[in-house]
């Protein structure tokens, strides 16, 4: 039976759970690339352009891991959730870049709400390519999204519940593909937890609230994921002790939005920008002094 490959990078952190549910329901076997490791990252750098961001380089590494292990890769294109909620251009080009770099069949759909192209149609199309009827795919979509929403709501409740914790609280403001990547965010989170810090994740808030809230800091921004993150910061700002901005070098949207936000907020913060040469030792020193400062309370 045909096997679908899911690369553990970029899109995975937004749509991975929905895809898994969708394929589970249809009983389509799939394989997810493992957590990022040195080999995956180095492989990615072989295929990537030098100037691509660390997260995208890693993504290509995950793709290359899957090439001889599946029949299809799932790679969407995410253009926009209406014009004032667009994405970074890597979300627009990933499909075409992979198609031209690797020899593999790709299951692809496009999300462009300004042109009424949405996830439902996308997954139905994918179902069709895999030989399922529209009805079957519709049911699978419903199941997938229903389950995802439940899980997501639970995650949000847990995350937002941490805002009332008695520990020192830090908001980790980052895109989820950086936060939860083994070579980017994991060690940072581990370190913070070990130092008795309550880590709150900027991607686990209700984006219906945060997206709109971002307008308090920026009225012209049109990058959806950055808006959601900024909104989370505004939502949490009175309850947290500090913010860690974490980006993958040289992230396009972050280069501007984080700059603007850091100029406008008066909460203690540090800015961590990671590239493939970053060592955790350097980061650890900065985290240590940041935590000292927060706990010292000056």
């Amino acid at each position: 039976m045909t096997k679908v490959g899911i690369a553990r990078g970029i899109f995975y952190y937004y749509y991975g759970d929905i895809w898994k549910n969708f394929f589970d329901y249809l009983k389509v076997p799939y394989i997810i690339s493992p957590n990022t490791n040195k080999e995956i990252m180095e492989n990615g750098m072989k295929y990537a352009n030098d100037e691509m961001c660390l997260a995208f380089k890693t993504y290509l590494g995950h793709v290359s891991y899957l090439i001889d292990k599946c029949d299809y890769l799932i790679i969407p294109r995410i253009d926009n959730y209406k014009l004032d909620n667009q994405t970074c251009t890597n979300f627009l080009s990933a499909y075409d870049i992979v198609k031209n770099t690797f020899d593999i069949k790709i299951l692809n759909y496009n999300i462009a709400l300004d042109k009424h192209q949405n996830l439902k149609q996308g997954l139905i199309n994918i179902g069709k390519q895999l030989g399922f009827s529209k009805e079957q795919s519709k049911k699978a979509y419903k199941y997938a999204v229903g389950l995802y929403k439940k899980d997501r709501a639970r995650d949000i409740t847990i995350n937002m519940g941490k805002l009332n914790s008695n520990k020192t609280k830090i908001l980790l403001l980052a895109h989820p593909y950086n936060t939860y990547d083994d070579l980017i965010g994991r060690d940072i989170i581990k370190y913070l937890n070990a130092n008795n810090i309550e880590v709150i994740f900027s991607d686990k808030f209700d984006d219906k609230i945060t997206n709109k809230l971002s307008e308090k800091i920026t009225k012209d921004l049109y990058f959806k994921y950055s808006k959601d993150n900024i909104g989370a910061l505004i939502y949490a700002k009175d309850k947290i002790d500090g913010v860690i901005f974490l980006s993958a070098f040289p992230c396009g949207p972050d280069s501007l939005t984080n700059e603007l936000v850091m100029r406008k907020i008066d909460i203690p913060h540090i800015n961590l920008v990671l590239d493939s040469n970053s060592s955790f030792t350097g980061i650890e020193t900065r985290l240590e002094s940041f935590i000292d400062m927060l706990k010292g309370g000056f």
Partner: peptide, 30 residues
Amino acid sequence: CRYGYYGEVQDQILKDLGYNVTLINLVTKG
């Protein structure tokens, strides 16, 4: 691309430098 977002950030940078200037962005949100 991010060019469309230059305006707001440049405005803030100029203000932080102490310049009392108005920046008018002719293209907003594309």
